[in-house]
Amino acid sequence: MADKKLLLIFRNPPFSDSSNKDTLDIALACSAFDIPVSLLFLHDAVLQLIKGQQSQALQQKNLINTFKALAMYDIDQLFLLESDLRRFALSTADLTVNCQAISESEMATLIRQFDTVINL
């Protein structure tokens, strides 16, 4: 089997539809199969990563602990757009996981490097 690099794109805010969790589950499963996985957070998806989320009262599963645990699965290539950070007045220091902030053109070049892209 050929090596396949996988990019997963998140596009939704926290506590929205199930696509965030479904995408995260793909990340964990593929990592277990030794597929190198990178994550790209676009638009509202950046909002999932804000530090200090206290969601117990919502009675909804919070994905933040899973995001924090990704490094243990060797998933440490997380990307987001500088322009999205600016839009939400955030910096990478406001986020709970280490992410690389890139420009739109860097994103386009980044996507070229992957064999498979899943964008739920």
Partner: peptide
Amino acid sequence: ADCFNTLL
């Protein structure tokens, strides 16, 4: 917009 930004 997302799609356009990723085009090359």
